[in-house]
Nucleic acid binder design. Sequence first.
DNA 1: GGGCGGCTACGACTTTGGTCGGTGGCCGCT
DNA 2: AGCGGCCACCGACCAAAGTCGTAGCCGCCC
Lengths: 226, 226
Amino acid sequence: MSVPGLPAESASPVRVLIVDDDPLVRAALNMMLDGAPGIVVAAVAADGDEVPAALDAYGVDVILMDLRMARVDGITATRRVRARPRAPEVVVLTTFDADENVVRALRAGAAGFLLKDTPPERIVHAVRTVAGGEPILSPRIVRRLMDRVVLEAGVADRARAALARLSPRERDVAAAVARGSTNAEIAEELAMSVATVKAHMTRVLEKLEMTNRTQIALLVHDAGGD
Amino acid sequence: MSVPGLPAESASPVRVLIVDDDPLVRAALNMMLDGAPGIVVAAVAADGDEVPAALDAYGVDVILMDLRMARVDGITATRRVRARPRAPEVVVLTTFDADENVVRALRAGAAGFLLKDTPPERIVHAVRTVAGGEPILSPRIVRRLMDRVVLEAGVADRARAALARLSPRERDVAAAVARGSTNAEIAEELAMSVATVKAHMTRVLEKLEMTNRTQIALLVHDAGGD
DNA sequence: GGGCGGCTACGACTTTGGTCGGTGGCCGCT
DNA sequence: AGCGGCCACCGACCAAAGTCGTAGCCGCCC
């Protein structure tokens, strides 16, 4: 709970719970973590349904969680863990980096997502990082998030460029269309007659080279709604 | 250019160019980097317009780039650098983490974005990381990206839940609407009469509790278009 | 002062969108 | 077999959206 940066390793060590159905993986993680300075492995579990008991029995700061497990999967277990009062941080550790898994893990409240090919010293580092309240993601996933941001920005950019051709009033009309309003509603919102709304609408369609209001709505939406 | 993981520090060191208009910052960065194992500061510049010459004169693997500079700002400089043949990696290092700066930096081709309050050892680590071809972001920014993903997933989820109430044919119609098609176009695409398209449309509007097609288009769009 | 571009407005018209009522087929249940 | 519910389909009808031509009123630039 100190200022960001590497957490003080002098005080009480970070207590870790390892959850994985593969005995070999459990052993490997145990070995690489239990020795590390400032870290102790508090408990080990083979399935998500064993987690609550482990949390009750031992104080746990960080959970390393596998996704594929027999009875209660890692996502579900993460969600349950994070619903508790002083919930530990969860780092999902899996072989598959499918986008959907990442999103589901983060939604469930995970503070980190690492691939199993992550080198040992990085896993150790990740445990300390999330214990300090910071997120951690595998580089490949960070890269994907970055690509996504750039892509969306490109789409928004082109949309905004198109909208820049509109006069202020036309923009108002376009924005209202993007809220799903009818011409009558727009007329009221903007305090003008329906005939005028239509006049603006025609100009907007013309400038944006479109043929109906639905296309306007989608474009404005892409531009980011701001 | 080796397998991910911390780059081998045994071979040739990572050559760094520091670009910042503040002499104090330059000095501080120089001090924290030049000593570090596997890293040498190849050159130092005070403005973006000095970068090309520095690159030509010295071999540079990584650039630490400030954003606010007098003549050529960091974004522009980054874009120019990244347009070159064997371009070095760029890490933007700035005081302000405004979303827009991050997006612009990434679009310009930056491999990393760090805040200036980043502790020295992290900056050193970041240099080695990007030299190894991996991205690096300040925790606060990673957090924001994660929040954003979760938020979007939530929106898409609710939209998809609503669409799940539709029959297959109704879904087809809704999807076509989200492409901005007219009823006539939809009729052709789906090989049915315009009257039938309208009938489906009415059912869709009813099930989704909406009053016009524009609202359908926006909802389907939110659901992710997949 | 004249001209231009943006905003407003109207009427009359065409096209598109949306409602209503009704047919028939395909379940699954009794 | 008979029935109810859901889905797909259609045509006729009415409402909303979009087009066209015209026009007055700014504020701005040459």
